[in-house]
Design a protein around this nucleic acid. Structure first.
Lengths: 151, 151
DNA sequence: TATTGTTATACTCTATAACTATA
DNA sequence: TATAGTTATAGAGTATAACAATA
């Protein structure tokens, strides 16, 4: 007999499941690069802003500083980043993204772009626009720190 | 200085964050009832279909049978469900939702409905419809077993 | 004294496999 | 032998607090 979860009608339930699906898509897409999405997020952030401390990165991404330690350890293991002491404040690290790391980020952009394009192919372009726009406004309204963080 | 995560432009990243936000909304809304969303999901499923075994429930909801054991233990602790042996196959349990459980489910529907209405208030009704419809089609296309499971 | 990065700890989730009782 | 429910165990993720080096 064919049965389905009765909460499937609820928009919120669908969006939770859709979020899961998008995360799985990202992780599966990035697996061949030997990294998870959080590694790419950290590298993207480091490449966008100059001279960030680990604290800055953790504030921008909303991940705990103690978690960031492990992520950067793993980036160093893969040769994608290097910790350098900040000479102006020797408590801080300036985390440098290597050429290999930059290349990995560029590949990840290409792979994720293609994966998402395929994923959203079942929708009209106008629907994808609405998804982009509506999710942005919902997060701006309900997630403090979604748009920008002071640091 | 004001800084934001550079991946915030990616639709997939937004939908992951939106899924997180929706899950938090549900858990915070249900907290006063002393249950998490998974407990409500199990009760909703039991109330919708008669005579389900725990295996059936775990197939419909996509949660592992060993996890379901703990969820039903907790529902019994709160007086929301009772395990009864199936006399036709004494290996199986018929899980019965008590009156208190049924009442909790009804309250949860009311609370979640109100919480979602407030959450989506920043959108036009047409945008909410698109969100509902697009998420359904994306899940149908990419999540095997989203629509229905055989059991 | 306060802050940055790090380590230690505990708690939750999840996934796998082993075990029991029934069939 | 196979299945339903249960238990045991290990791994990942997360959150909190303590700690060393530096300011």
């Amino acid at each position: 007999m064919e049965r389905r979860p009765p909460m499937g009608d609820r928009t919120g339930y669908r969006l939770v499941k859709l979020g899961d699906a998008m995360l799985s898509l990202a992780e599966e897409t990035l697996a061949p690069l030997g990294v998870k999405s959080k590694h790419v997020h950290v590298m993207e952030t480091l490449l966008t802003y100059d001279g960030l401390s680990q604290q800055d990165v953790s504030r921008i991404l909303g991940i705990d500083p103690n978690v960031l330690v492990g992520v950067i350890d793993e980036l160093e293991d893969r040769g994608f980043a290097e910790r350098r002491r900040n000479p102006e404040d020797r408590r801080r690290h300036l985390v440098h993204v290597t050429d290999a790391g930059r290349e990995a980020v560029e590949t990840s952009r290409r792979l994720l772009g293609a994966a998402e394009e395929a994923f959203f192919a079942v929708l009209d372009p106008a629907e994808v626009d609405t998804l982009r726009d509506a999710s942005d406004r919902l997060l701006a309204a309900h997630r403090p720190g979604w748009q920008s963080v002071d640091c």
